[in-house]
Each structure stands twice: as structure tokens, then as C-alpha cells.
């Protein structure tokens, strides 16, 4: 199962335009935040470049699914936790554009719809859950954030497809049940897999790149201090 990119030409033209219009304000907001960050801190541009390349590669990793198949993580949860949702919106949209042009995954007419699910709703929902669960500890919050970001992305895609192709008998509700049902079978296990992978990555980063996580605000000074006090 490929990552949930809506393929080029899959959406009717009106829907493609509408989703592009819906995604545009979030992307503009992200670009404004990106511009401010780069003005205040010119060297951040290079780190943002590295972050974008990391997001692209992350979404190309194959992860084993509980159902026995293989899939790719969306990477939106980890991206939102590390770089915050507005920046992730921009990085995610650029990643989607490159995936369309370099890998033919997704499309140019469906870029708005894909950006809305994968670079906007997924990161914002995942980040909100991560912040809400942060009190339970870093790793449980990371798992919850990545799980919700992944699942929300698929739910939004189901809604987009159901709106574009309502069922002939039962309309939008029936189509949502069809698309949601298919995604539920394949994507709930994948969302769990992505949550687990994200926890593994953050756990390793906590020991190998604590300074970066501190700078990005993922770790707090007291987290590092507490860890250092634990005897070997």
C-alpha cells in the first residue's frame, strides 16, 4: 500500500481547486513564519534544508505493518513535534511537490488536497495531541502524536475522496464508510507502526542528539538534567 497520496488527475477539477484554496492560507502562514525565522537567524535556512530532506527520506522509509504488508510512514507527526506545525506545513508541501515531480507519487493538481491532509491537518492534530499528552512523559506523548497525525491524515483523505465521489445510493455517508472502512483495515495498524517507529527514533535522538532536541524545544533542560542524574 503506498502512502496516502491522491494521484494526479484523481480528483475532479473543482475539488482540486477547492482543496488548493483551503490549503493556501495555512501555507501562506507557514511561509511568513519561515521568513521570520530565517530573517532572525540566517543560518536556520541550512538546518531547514536538512529538515526538509530528512522529512522526504522519512516518508520514503518502508515500515513493516501489523497486517504483514509494508508501507511508508507519513512522517508528519515527527516533523510537527520537531519543527512545529507551521514550519512543517511548508516543509511538508515542498516534500509533496518533490514526491510528485521526482517520484510521481501524488500530483500537481492534487497537491492542495494532499497538502491539506498530510502537511496541515495531520501535523496540527498530531502536535495538539503531543502537547496534551506531554505531561505523561516524552515517549508516550510522541507515540500519541505520531499515531494521531498518521490516522488524521488518512481520515481527511477519506473525507476528500468521499466528497469527490459520493456513493450512488447513500451519498457522502456511504462513500465515507467505504473509503474509511478500507483505510481503517490497513491504516490503523500502520498508524500504530508509525507511532512505534517515531518513539524509537526520538528515544535514540534523546541520547545521540540531546542538544538539537533542546534547541528545537522537544526536550526541556530539566529532562536532560534528570537523565544525567540517573546512575549508569
Amino acid at each position: 500500500m503506498p502512502p496516502v497520496h491522491i494521484a494526479e488527475g484523481y480528483l475532479p477539477p473543482l475539488h482540486a481547486v477547492a482543496w488548493t484554496a483551503a490549503a493556501a492560507p495555512f501555507i501562506v502562514h507557514g511561509v511568513i513564519r519561515l521568513g521570520r525565522e530565517v530573517r532572525e537567524n540566517p543560518e536556520a535556512k541550512l538546518l531547514l534544508g536538512a529538515s526538509g530532506a530528512f522529512c522526504f527520506v522519512l516518508s520514503a522509509l518502508k515500515i513493516p505493518s501489523v497486517t504483514g504488508s509494508c508501507s511508508h510512514p507519513t512522517g508528519t507527526g515527527l516533523g510537527a513535534i520537531l519543527f512545529r506545525p507551521p514550519i512543517m506545513t511548508v516543509l511538508g508541501t515542498i516534500t509533496l511537490l518533490f514526491q510528485a515531480l521526482l517520484l510521481a507519487h501524488g500530483g500537481l493538481t492534487t497537491l492542495g488536497a494532499n497538502a491539506f491532509s498530510m502537511a496541515i491537518v495531520g501535523p496540527w492534530a498530531g502536535y495538539a495531541v503531543y502537547r496534551a499528552c506531554r505531561g505523561f512523559g516524552l515517549l508516550p506523548a510522541v507515540f500519541a502524536g505520531a499515531f494521531v497525525a498518521d490516522l488524521t491524515t488518512y481520515c481527511v483523505t477519506s473525507v476528500q475522496l468521499a466528497l469527490a465521489f459520493p456513493d450512488q445510493e447513500s451519498g457522502f455517508a456511504g462513500a465515507l464508510a467505504k473509503f474509511g472502512g478500507i483505510f481503517a483495515v490497513t491504516q490503523i495498524p500502520l498508524a500504530i507502526s508509525e507511532g512505534l517507529l517515531t518513539v524509537l527514533v526520538v528515544r535514540l535522538l534523546r541520547s545521540s542528539a540531546a542538544e538539537d532536541l533542546l534547541r528545537l524545544g522537544v526536550l526541556r533542560q530539566k529532562d536532560v538534567a534528570t537523565k544525567e542524574q540517573v546512575p549508569a
Binding site: 534544508g49 530528512f54 522519512l58 527514533v201 535514540l204 542528539a209
Partner: peptide, 18 residues
């Protein structure tokens, strides 16, 4: 391996950018 790969790619990307 996947966890190690994800974190190593992150660390190396940032190191290269720096």
C-alpha cells in the same frame, strides 16, 4: 534498525547542515 536509521539520518543531516 529502522529506529537507528531514522535517528542516524537526522543526526547526520543536521551535522552536514552545520
Amino acid at each position: 534498525s529502522l529506529g537507528g536509521l531514522g535517528s542516524a539520518v537526522f543526526v547526520r543531516s543536521f551535522d552536514r547542515a552545520r
